[in-house]
């Protein structure tokens, strides 16, 4: 049994199944983070005693740069596959993975600094929001890393048998990855700068 339009595009929609699927998933993710952003806004406007401790802006700026770079390497990995350059794909997706690792390590240092200043989720509602949102975002980064590692390693065997399908997989992984980047782009000013 073969599912139609798994690899090739359906003529009237111009999409293959996975692409529609990932965009639907991202739509639901928008609503997930939307719920958190909405909560953040409400709690902040509703609390006259709102208090925001200083967070490390330089570290977060660095992390923003790291995540943006990883988005570029991801999209370059996909472009390399479309240029039939498997070696470059390997290179770029490895770079993506390493940049994601760097992001998580920096995040770890940040958390550590905060703990050492006795800032915990229970300290106040800002810290609660901060840890919940960055934590959930971090989980998304982790999930993306697993997929990227898989496509770099064992998953890449598919390139030999079904190159187009493999390219599609990299494309939709990229879409997810850029979304994670996009969330961070909003988290960064919302949590660190304002």
């Amino acid at each position: 049994m073969e599912i139609p339009y798994n690899v090739e595009e359906r003529p009237d929609t111009g999409l293959y199944n996975g692409k529609l699927g990932i965009w639907l998933f991202l739509a639901s993710e928008v609503m997930l983070f939307g719920g958190l952003f909405s909560s953040y806004i409400l709690l902040r406007t509703g609390d006259p005693n709102w208090f925001k401790p200083e967070l490390s802006v330089p570290m977060a700026t660095l992390n923003t740069m790291v995540l943006i770079s990883s988005s570029v390497t991801m999209v370059m990995a996909w472009a390399s596959l479309r240029l039939q350059d498997f070696k470059k794909f390997r290179l770029f997706s490895a770079a993506t993975f390493l940049l994601a690792c760097a992001f998580m390590v920096i995040k770890g240092f940040e958390y550590n600094t905060e703990f050492s200043h006795h800032l915990y989720p229970s300290s106040n509602n800002f810290m609660a929001t901060y840890f919940t949102m960055t934590g959930l975002h971090g989980l998304h980064v982790l999930g993306g890393m697993v997929v990227i590692a898989y496509l770099w390693g064992p998953g890449s065997r598919m390139w030999k048998t079904e190159p187009e399908r493999f390219t599609n997989r990299v494309e939709i992984t990229g879409l997810y990855w850029h979304f994670v980047d996009l969330v961070w782009i909003f988290l960064f000013p919302a949590l660190y700068l304002l």
Partner: peptide, 25 residues
């Protein structure tokens, strides 16, 4: 289901934080 459920998932995570991590959402 796709678009209405995620905010409750967010709320569920926040209530879990309230119960387990001592936050006050």
């Amino acid at each position: 289901l796709l678009l209405a459920f995620p905010p409750l998932e967010a709320a569920g995570v926040m209530q879990l934080m309230d119960r387990l991590a001592g936050t006050s959402f």
